[in-house]
């Protein structure tokens, strides 16, 4: 579904991604782990071109999307993204946050969008918060709304950029549970996270990054129980 070939990304003199190759199959849950500054968030953000790579290909369902002639907006409608800092729109209440893009971009009627939003809110356990403004929600609630907002566009793949890193420990679980359910329902997911237990439990494939390259990848069993590289062994010893 997504294929990355020879990806290179630089921030000025800092070479963050060095010839990265990655493949994500339909229905697969790929979890990217690694130390801070290893380039995992940048890699994720290159998948929907929030970061534009200097070199290499990002291929989504057979189309090279880092190309000038591609309408990136229509591609992004099919790739949901969830951010570390939630990024709910504070000028709108929960239901408006969720319905805005389906109504404006997919020309869904407001009533249909609202019904869909309510059922999404139910699935993340927040149907009673529909008319709340984001400022009145806890971090965990905000993140669940953010997931519902991304799902409202009915994306083919969901990208998660450290979705629990800004949460209090007791709220991490409610977000992870929503993500787990999503994975069980067959959603294709790419997740950057520091939650190793979650990665082990939910990931079909684990990708370990360090220094802008993919050092090792494999099943959770291979990565967590039989790490090959010293770098990965050292990294896992911190948990």
């Amino acid at each position: 579904m997504i294929e990355v070939k020879g990806l290179n990304k630089k921030f000025n003199s800092l070479h963050v991604l060095k010839d990265v190759d990655l493949k994500v199959e339909k229905g697969e849950v790929v979890v990217i782990i690694g130390p801070s500054g290893s380039g995992k968030s940048t890699l994720l953000r290159c998948l929907n071109l929030l970061e534009v790579p200097e070199g290499g290909d990002v291929i989504f369902e057979g189309i090279k999307i880092n190309d000038k002639n591609i309408d990136i907006n229509s591609i992004r409608q099919r790739m949901g993204m969830v951010f570390q800092s939630f990024n709910l729109f504070p000028n709108m209440n929960v239901i408006e946050n969720i319905t805005l893009s389906p109504v404006k971009l997919k020309k869904v009627s407001l009533d249909d969008a609202k019904n869909k939003a309510i059922s999404l809110l139910k699935s993340v356990g927040l149907e009673d918060k529909a008319n709340y403004f984001p400022s009145k929600l806890s971090g965990g609630q905000k993140q669940r709304v953010a997931i519902a907002r991304a799902l409202a566009m009915e994306p083919d793949v969901m990208l998660f950029d450290e979705p629990t890193s800004a949460l209090d420990p007791e709220m991490v679980k409610e977000v992870l549970n929503v993500m787990k359910k999503l994975a069980e329902d067959g959603m294709t997911m790419v997740i950057v996270t520091h939650e190793m237990n979650f990665a082990k439990e939910v990931g079909d494939r684990i990708v370990f990054m360090d220094g802008g390259t993919i050092v090792e990848e494999g099943t959770p069993e291979e990565i967590f129980n039989n790490p090959k590289s010293d770098r990965l062994k050292e990294f896992l010893s911190h948990f």
Partner: peptide
């Protein structure tokens, strides 16, 4: 906040 633009663009908004 920069994240606001990113969130909007990630949903596919021009």
């Amino acid at each position: 906040d920069k994240g606001q633009m990113e969130a909007a663009r990630s949903l596919g908004m021009p």
